[in-house]
Amino acid sequence: MSQLLLDDIKGPILVIAPHPDDETLGCGGLIAAATAAGKLVHTVFVTDGSSSHRNSPTWPADRIAQQRQHEAAAALAALGAGNQPRTFMALKDAAMPQPGAQGHADAVSSLATLVRNLKPDLVLVPWRRDPHCDHRDSWSLITHVLAQTAIASRVLEYTIWLDELGAPEDFPVPGEVTEFTFSDPEIVAVKRRAIAAHASQLGTLITDDPDGFHLTPATLDRLIRPVEIFWQA
Rank of each mutant, 00 (worst) to 15 (best):
12 P>K: 05
173 V>F: 06
62 D>C: 09
110 S>W: 11
174 P>Q: 10
204 T>L: 08
112 A>F: 04
196 A>P: 07
230 F>Y: 02
110 S>N: 15
178 T>N: 11
194 A>E: 03
221 D>V: 10
201 Q>Y: 06
147 A>R: 14
14 L>W: 03
97 P>C: 10
207 T>L: 12
67 Q>L: 15
145 V>P: 01
46 V>H: 10
148 Q>K: 14
45 F>C: 08
63 R>S: 07
140 S>R: 14
55 N>G: 11
162 L>N: 05
126 P>L: 02
15 V>K: 05
15 V>D: 06
155 V>T: 09
52 S>V: 10
230 F>N: 00
96 M>Q: 07
138 S>A: 15
136 R>W: 09
36 A>P: 06
208 D>G: 05
181 T>A: 11
63 R>K: 14
135 H>T: 08
123 V>H: 01
16 I>N: 07
63 R>N: 07
142 I>M: 08
189 A>M: 09
28 G>S: 01
173 V>L: 12
181 T>M: 09
10 K>N: 14
31 I>E: 00
79 L>R: 03
44 V>T: 07
162 L>E: 02
96 M>W: 01
177 V>K: 05
6 L>A: 02
99 P>E: 06
7 D>I: 00
205 L>D: 06
17 A>Y: 05
99 P>V: 07
17 A>D: 12
226 P>G: 11
24 T>D: 04
167 A>K: 13
90 A>G: 09
93 D>F: 01
180 F>L: 13
186 E>W: 12
150 A>Y: 07
199 A>F: 09
35 T>V: 15
110 S>H: 15
107 A>L: 03
34 A>L: 07
52 S>W: 06
82 G>K: 08
220 L>K: 04
104 H>C: 07
168 P>Y: 05
90 A>I: 06
140 S>H: 15
117 N>I: 13
44 V>Q: 03
89 M>I: 07
224 I>G: 01
160 I>P: 01
93 D>C: 05
39 K>H: 14
106 D>A: 14
190 V>M: 02
184 D>L: 06
163 D>I: 10
87 T>A: 11
120 P>E: 14
106 D>P: 02
34 A>E: 01
216 T>R: 09
95 A>L: 13
59 W>A: 06
117 N>Q: 15
129 R>H: 12
31 I>D: 00
157 E>D: 10
100 G>L: 06
87 T>I: 11
140 S>T: 14
229 I>V: 15
39 K>V: 05
62 D>T: 12
138 S>D: 10
59 W>P: 01
65 A>Q: 02
172 P>T: 01
31 I>T: 01
80 G>V: 04
63 R>E: 09
202 L>A: 05
171 F>K: 00
36 A>L: 11
5 L>I: 07
73 A>R: 11
135 H>Q: 10
91 L>P: 00
86 R>C: 13
69 Q>L: 04
91 L>R: 00
127 W>F: 03
179 E>A: 11
232 Q>R: 10
138 S>H: 05
109 S>P: 08
110 S>Q: 15
190 V>G: 00
19 H>V: 11
175 G>F: 04
209 D>N: 06
172 P>R: 02
32 A>D: 05
98 Q>K: 14
199 A>R: 12
84 Q>K: 13
164 E>M: 13
207 T>E: 10
73 A>T: 12
63 R>G: 04
119 K>W: 14
185 P>Y: 06
